[in-house]
């Protein structure tokens, strides 16, 4: 039986709308809502978490994320510059760093910085947040170095030529002309990196955290084992979203604001 083109398009339209709707309906009707509510949405348990889940958990997550992000930029920028250097050993060093720290799970780097290196070299990173923040920064730096390199290379050659022809040194050209333009190009990928870091900060538990330095995810999991209930995980998820959504909105705003000046 041959369908006309119109009949076929109508059939496709019907199935693509009706099938997902039917599935959704089945889930809604068949799910045990009271059990779900019991396990994940108990208002009293949720209310009990406040305010400490914010004053401790959210606060520490923000501290780890901020330290790691700033540290990542500070370490990532010189690595990006080494990666672009005309001196071959510099390039090799930067490439090795990037490949190594990108290729190894963040959790391994955390353990290395927190335990292995202090044992091997007898140096300890100072500060309550120090070792974990440094480890996250080292990982972030590897990703950011590539982002920064790509941003720098996206600035047209003519910009460097114009600056050099005015007598500006290579370093001055980089700082005053190339990097400001590169950063504008890098806002979207750097936001991405920030959000990834926000979630990677949940890994710092492997180094052991105190009641003072515990971050949001661990705080939630402890609450789950204390209450034998999943509600804290729901609260944790919502709090992560409450942090990350404004960040991505802000980045979108910055990007738009930067656009007309280009």
């Amino acid at each position: 039986m041959a369908l006309s083109r119109r009949q076929r398009s109508r059939l496709i339209h019907f199935t693509t709308t009706a099938v997902p709707l039917a599935v959704l309906l089945a889930v809604v009707l068949l799910a045990d809502w009271s059990a779900i509510q019991q396990a994940f949405f108990q208002p009293e348990i949720a209310a009990d978490l406040f305010p400490r889940i914010v004053t401790v958990g959210v606060k520490n997550t923000l501290i780890y994320t901020t330290l790691a992000f700033i540290g990542g930029l500070l370490i990532g920028l010189p690595i990006a510059l080494l990666r672009l250097s005309s001196v071959r050993p510099y390039r090799w060093f930067a490439a090795t760093y990037i490949e190594l720290l990108r290729g190894v799970p963040a959790i391994v780097t955390l353990i290395a910085v927190g335990f292995a290196i202090p044992i091997a070299l007898d140096v300890r990173v100072p500060g309550q947040y120090g070792p974990a923040a440094l480890a996250l920064a080292l990982v972030a730096a590897a990703y950011m170095a590539e982002t920064i390199r790509a941003g720098i290379q996206a600035v047209p050659r003519g910009q460097t030529e114009a600056a050099r022809s005015l007598g500006m040194s290579p370093a001055r050209t980089m700082i005053a002309i190339v990097i400001p333009q590169a950063f504008r190009i890098m806002i979207p990928p750097l936001t991405n990196e920030l959000v990834l870091l926000l979630k990677d900060s949940s890994l710092v538990f492997v180094l052991g955290t105190t009641a003072e330095t515990v971050e949001l995810a661990k705080y939630g999991r402890d609450a789950v084992s204390r209450t034998f209930n999943g509600t804290p995980l729901t609260v944790v998820a919502l709090l992560y979203l409450a942090i990350s959504l404004p960040l991505t909105r802000l980045a979108a705003h910055l990007e738009r604001r930067g656009a007309p000046a280009r």
Partner: peptide
């Protein structure tokens, strides 16, 4: 080199103004 270049003004086909 940088010092000598300050004595030589250059204008390019594609302007190369600093857009930021």
């Amino acid at each position: 080199l940088d010092d000598i270049r300050t004595r030589i003004g250059m204008v390019f086909q594609h302007f190369n103004l600093f857009p930021h």
